[in-house]
């Protein structure tokens, strides 16, 4: 019977995907309850603070999108959530850059972690584009000033016809829909990559599989 079902699942994309996921991302790796001892450093907290800030950015952004520009400029609650959105973005960028410094000086792309590093680089780029479209979506003189100055820079790159900073609808749509979805997906992929490969050991230390092997041998 089992041979039969094995035969049946041979060539099945679903079974192959399931097998790949079970091999590459077991639950012990996806939701670990223990970490190597070198993770006991404040430097490793920068990444999770960045994710926490992103959660605040998304939550406050959803509320702003629900009520609209007039509310966020004129009402007291609106101004509060506008400021909450702005300041959580500041925290997000500060801790993302601190996380970048920490990982750079640890050479975190070592031992097969290049995809994790590259997804981080792309996330950094997308977050800058998201912040830029956010500045353009404020619906105030600051946004107009930024748009009028930015249009020449964007046009000089040749993408002005496609990415028109003076088009509020386009910038707002990108800011509240496409770019945040991209950001969240990229961050999720980044975390999954970290879970798959394990947290990078300090330079000169044994990697996690080596430590596990050493502990098992003892």
């Amino acid at each position: 019977m089992s041979t039969n079902s094995g035969d049946q699942s041979r060539g099945s994309w679903t079974a192959a995907t399931r097998g790949q996921l079970e091999r590459r991302l077991p639950w012990d790796n996806l939701l670990p309850d223990r970490q190597p001892y070198w993770v006991g450093s404040w430097v490793y907290v920068f990444g999770v603070v960045t994710i926490a800030a992103l959660a605040w950015v998304v939550a406050s952004g959803v509320i702003l999108a629900l009520f609209g520009p007039q509310w966020w400029h004129l009402s007291r609650a609106g101004r509060f959530f506008n400021s909450l959105h702005s300041w959580s973005v500041q925290v997000f960028f500060v801790f993302m850059v601190l996380h970048l410094w920490g990982q750079y000086f640890m050479a975190s792309w070592r031992e097969g972690r290049a995809p994790t590093w590259m997804i981080g680089v792309v996330t950094f780029g997308v977050s800058i584009a998201t912040a830029f479209t956010g500045y353009l979506s404020q619906q105030n003189f600051d946004a107009q000033w930024i748009a009028v100055n930015a249009k020449d820079a964007i046009n000089s790159t040749g993408v002005g016809g496609f990415f028109n900073v003076l088009n509020f609808g386009q910038m707002y749509g990108l800011h509240v829909m496409l770019l945040p979805i991209g950001m969240v997906l990229l961050v999720a992929l980044h975390v999954i990559q970290v879970r798959m490969k394990g947290v990078v050991p300090p330079i000169g230390r044994l990697s996690q599989p080596d430590v596990t092997r050493e502990m098992t041998e003892k």
Binding site: S41, V43, V94, G102
Partner: peptide, 30 residues
């Protein structure tokens, strides 16, 4: 702001992480 970030980074390197020393010893013993 860049100055503040440098201070936070330096503090993260220098300040001990809660529970870290005990765990480290446990790992080494095993």
């Amino acid at each position: 702001l860049i100055g503040i970030m440098l201070v936070i980074f330096a503090l993260a390197l220098l300040l001990p992480f809660p529970g870290h020393a005990a765990d480290d010893q446990t790992e080494k013993k095993s």
